[in-house]
Computed example of a mutant assay.
Amino acid sequence: MKSLCSILFFSFLAFSVNAQSVSTAYNQALADSLGADEYGMKPYVLVILKTGSSKLNDQNKVSELFRGHLNNIGKLAEEGKLVVAGPLGKNEKNYRGIFIFNTKTIEEAKDMLQTDPAIKEKLLDAELYEWYGSAALPMYLPAHTKIEKIRP
């Protein structure tokens, strides 16, 4: 019985090793330039933006801060620090949007958030999480500029 279990175990192990294969489309130079690991993935920081604690009544000031927020998104994206940003629909958790920062550390992402006037003024608060995703994620931004008719 013990030898049967050993045979089954080693057969399973051999099968699982052979189940993985190297992609024929693999591009080492591209993977290296994007910081990809062997799975084509890398760490990022995911930020969930939510309604902040500030209660400004001056709508001109609020508009100015959100214009600065959008301008900052553009600046961080151009610098390659921000690879995804976008609003969320209405929800009961007061989540407003997401960012995915092209950094491995939450500390560095916190520093980047401090360049956002809406966050600095507490109109928006942020929850930060380590996230593991495709290293090719930043490649969609150049394509987006080709389909974006109106820039916010």
Rank of each mutant, 00 (worst) to 15 (best):
M1P: 10
M1W: 11
C5I: 13
I7A: 15
L8S: 10
L8W: 07
A14H: 02
A14F: 15
F15M: 15
V17W: 12
N18W: 15
A19M: 15
S21R: 14
S21F: 11
S21M: 07
V22H: 10
V22Y: 08
T24I: 13
A29T: 14
L30H: 00
A31E: 03
G40D: 07
G40R: 06
M41N: 09
L46R: 07
V47T: 11
V47D: 05
K50L: 03
S53A: 13
S53G: 04
K55F: 01
N60I: 09
V62P: 08
V62L: 04
E64Y: 11
L65P: 06
R67I: 06
G68I: 03
G68E: 02
H69E: 10
A77I: 05
G80Y: 02
A85Q: 04
P87N: 01
P87T: 09
P87V: 03
L88R: 08
N91G: 02
N91I: 07
N94I: 04
F99T: 02
I100Y: 06
N102G: 06
T103M: 11
T105D: 09
I106H: 04
E108W: 09
A109L: 03
K110M: 04
M112L: 15
Q114N: 10
A118K: 11
K120V: 15
E121V: 04
E121G: 06
E121L: 05
K122D: 14
A126E: 11
E127I: 09
E127H: 11
L128R: 12
E130A: 14
E130W: 00
Y132M: 07
S134Y: 03
S134V: 00
A135S: 09
A135Y: 00
M139C: 01
Y140R: 14
L141P: 00
P142K: 11
A143L: 15
T145V: 13
I147Q: 14
I150V: 14
P152F: 12
